[in-house]
């Protein structure tokens, strides 16, 4: 059967569509001009301005801290949730649980943000906690919506994992908790790392939910970026975008390199299997 080239061509066009805007941002971040259309010369001007913007830097630092805490919390809860869905069979209220886990994947952020804010306000009225809105409420809200993504990642990894590994451990005398920590956890570790990174990125990037549940003094990076670009274009944002892209690209390249090396070693080891 002759394979049509059409999909490949369309894939190329689609990828260009995906990447063109990002490439443009990066290129114009080095432009020595306010205009984002006319190239007037190479300059690091916008990077200097960005690094001089203490408000932006503070917000970035806050966002990173929030994202770190969120990722850690979401990984714990999301892993347990994934475990429940993949391994616990039927338990009371499973349908409700599965619904509550998958709804945040698609729930419009304005609704989640509003609902969480009203929860925090009501809780403060009722029990006096959490007192006011700020970093804590942001982290709680972020954990709530990112744990669903972690749960999906972990669950699909667990589903593809051979259950008899866990059964074998239990058969050899390990209790369920021990089985989880000594067998399951090391085997799904890569998925847990992916889940952590996913939660970190989602938290770092979130604007809408954060805006609802943040308070005075807890302005995150996306909030600053949003309020500044809402009024028009700001070239420092290009510089910021370039830094983000550079960090992500480096991370991905590193991960790809490590993975390739691991695969090579493994292949070599497998090929010598059976020989002393």
């Amino acid at each position: 059967m002759r394979k049509s080239r059409l999909p490949m061509v369309l894939l190329g066009v689609g990828l260009a569509f995906l990447y063109l805007p990002i490439v443009l941002l990066v290129v114009y971040s080095f432009n020595d001009n306010r205009s984002l259309t006319v190239w007037t010369g190479f300059s690091l001007r916008w990077y200097h301005e960005l690094l001089a913007d203490s408000q932006m830097l503070e917000a970035a630092w806050l966002s990173l801290r929030i994202a770190f805490a969120t990722a850690c919390g979401a990984v714990v809860l999301g892993t347990l949730a994934g475990l429940m869905l993949a391994r616990f069979g039927a338990f009371r209220g499973r349908a409700l649980f599965a619904g509550m886990i998958s709804a945040p994947l698609v729930m419009p952020e304005v609704i989640m943000g509003l609902a969480l804010l009203l929860l925090f306000v009501s809780a403060e009225q009722l029990v006096g906690w959490p007192a006011g809105r700020g970093v804590l409420t942001i982290i709680l809200a972020h954990i709530t919506f990112t744990m669903s993504f972690v749960a999906v990642v972990i669950q699909s990894r667990l589903v593809s994992m051979d259950v008899s590994l866990e059964e074998a451990a239990m058969d050899l005398g390990a209790r369920p908790a021990k089985v989880f920590f000594v067998i399951t956890l090391p085997i799904i570790a890569p998925a847990i790392v992916s889940g952590w990174l996913l939660a970190f990125t989602l938290s770092l990037d979130d604007l809408v939910i954060t805006s609802f549940v943040s308070g005075p003094g807890s302005t995150t990076l996306p909030m600053i970026v949003f309020s500044s670009i809402r009024l028009g274009l700001k070239p420092e944002i290009n510089a910021l975008a370039t830094i983000v892209v550079a960090v992500v690209a480096t991370g991905i390249a590193l991960a790809g390199f490590l993975e390739a090396r691991r695969a090579r070693i493994r292949e070599r080891e497998e090929s010598q299997a059976g020989r002393v």
Partner: peptide, 29 residues
Amino acid sequence: PPYDRPVNMMFQSYALFPHMTVENNVAFG
């Protein structure tokens, strides 16, 4: 439960723990 039975099982898929050496697999029980 399985972990309290005087019984051991050899699995069809062998179920060897991929992250442990042969020695540690055997020592696990």
